[in-house]
Design a protein around this nucleic acid. Structure first.
Lengths: 331, 331
DNA sequence: CTGTTAGCGCCTTCAT
DNA sequence: ATGAAGGCGCTAACAG
């Protein structure tokens, strides 16, 4: 593809390569005459500068890595979109990596990305500590944690206020008379799952209500199989995310129960499809696109060495009441 | 982050840089003694080779570009997952770019990716011709078109048999007694939309049935607003993809119609949520993950210069009958 | 088997 | 304002 180097341009224009470089980057004054010659040569050759060589020289690649569990989950897809839009506008590209929450995988990916000299990393991983990542951060790797923080790593992050989200949900549910709770949560190691768990238990206890809690996985299948095994129905089943809720509802209906008549079900995330689910899902909205965008913004600031006012951003969730929950009549 | 070069390793190990390079790449025999020294030095320094420098030297970056309309659409997210899984396994990374079907954007993205020396490109763009892309291909850029072919560009591709998909759907619908059709299709410029359109019209005409056809966009909103404006109801509304169908059904229900009692509605793609939609969507399944995987596979073969048996891959769609369609009783 | 050397394409002093 | 030269980190001849 029109593989030309700055050298050829220089030759064709009858100038030195430094002059070409100067007009290319406007890094120093160049006489009108030479500038025109160079521009003409560039035009005729269809020359593009090699970002690669520039990267090697300058130590910046203009690419950001993004390690996340699974792009197939709309929650992450929307986050990625927010990040990519912002980065693209700022002249950066995104290398996307699916980790399936597998720490080994995360480490491999991290090695590759670093060896490709990414300028920074967006990281949505498991919550367990990650020694390699920790080390790299200490050695200067720029990273913003997205949606999930890792214990023992002091770095920038963009998360939502999980405590608030859970309490919003509980306020509503308790207000509607629910007294007996089951919480089918996501992965135990995941930051947000833990926070929500703690908030949930604390609140339920102070209110003196009944509950059961299970850590599973953030997937449709996990919700489905857990719900299949449920012996008795509570007033409401809280789910770690919308995907789990989908699985739970499907399983429940297969067992002959009606949602919300027989049991209320709630999700978490409000991915775009939850509005169209049968029944439309009561859930907690997370500003996914904005999370991605804010994280990208923050990362770029860090890369550019700006003094940060806030090293972390905490976004607000929002309660979305739809039709998978009901008012408890008596009890 | 532990910025060490091969030079430092060489120095520390007391050997030449070529020896280091040799043990790194196993590119030539090295005595056990030196090898051990080098390995020790690498270990102690925490050295990683710079993929960047290697890329510059070898002219290969081990990264693939993927230009697609919108990762937020599960259809593409699943394709991407298939591609990324395969590529990661083969030691490649994916740079993800959302184009929003905007040709200007596509061209900008293409320029950036080329200047970053991608080894190949996965492209899901508009159907209109793209002069820059055409030129780059002629100059040796390796690309595989995914889901959509561009007129006048002779390159490799992975698509599904849209004709078959449409006919499967029509077989079923006609068999169930539907006689009056509306087709709310996606973007006019899109390859698959055009093929389906042609197949549809041809078939409906030979069967001597009634129809109307509209090109819109592949989105929920497009389906919603088009359905809102529909004056009279046909027996069935075919939709260009599942997203459009979601919008159509929602609009219909807001107008007080029931699906499928008052009108059948079908989608196309079978994204994972269509099974859970209210009502569960009758649609045409496309093997998304496999499409991405196959495309990645094909691209890598091309990059490695293998002689191809098939320059294109056509995958088979599958009719998925659920509850958004019905048997017509009389008429 | 091992070391020296010449670039890959670019930016950046340093002279002029 | 312009050019020459060095080097970013690496691989691939080429000697020895």
């Amino acid at each position: 593809m029109g593989k030309h180097s700055i050298k050829e341009v220089a030759k064709k224009a009858g100038v030195s390569i430094s002059t070409v470089s100067r007009v290319l980057n406007n890094s120093a004054p160049v006489s009108e005459k030479l500038r025109r010659k160079v521009e003409k040569a560039i035009e005729e050759l269809g020359y593009y500068p090699s970002h690669l060589a520039k990267s090697l020289r300058k130590g910046e690649t203009g690419t950001i890595g993004f390690i996340l569990p699974d792009i197939t989950n709309p929650f992450f897809a929307n986050i990625v979109r927010g990040a990519e839009d912002y980065l693209r506008n700022e002249g950066y590209n995104l290398i996307l990596c699916n980790s399936d929450q597998n720490q080994m995988q995360e480490i491999e990916l991290l090695k590759v990305l670093i060896s490709k000299n990414i300028d920074g990393l967006l990281f949505t991983g498991t919550g367990s500590s990650n020694p390699l990542l920790l080390e790299k951060i200490q050695h200067g790797l720029k990273v913003v944690f997205l949606d999930r923080i890792i214990q023992g790593i002091n770095s920038s992050y963009v998360i939502i206020d999980n405590k608030k989200g859970m309490n919003l949900l509980l306020d509503y549910l308790i207000g509607k008379g629910h007294k007996n709770f089951v919480f089918i949560n996501g992965n135990k190691e995941t930051f947000s799952a833990r926070i929500r768990y703690e908030t949930f238990v604390k609140r339920i206890r102070t209110e003196n209500l009944k509950f059961k809690h299970y850590f599973t996985e953030f997937s449709y299948e996990a919700g489905y199989s857990k719900a299949k095994k449920l012996k008795e129905l509570p007033d409401v089943i809280l789910c770690g995310n919308d995907l789990i809720a989908y699985g739970v509802i499907d399983a429940l209906e297969e067992k002959g129960y009606k949602v919300p008549e027989d049991v209320s079900v709630t999700g978490f995330d409000d991915i775009p499809f939850s509005k169209h689910f049968k029944p439309p899902l009561t859930t907690v909205y997370q500003p996914m696109y904005e999370m991605g965008k804010k994280a990208a913004e923050l990362l770029l600031k860090i890369i550019k060495g700006e003094k940060l006012i806030n090293k972390g951003v905490i976004l607000s969730p929002q309660l979305i009441i739809r039709e998978s929950t009901k008012e408890m009549v008596n009890k």
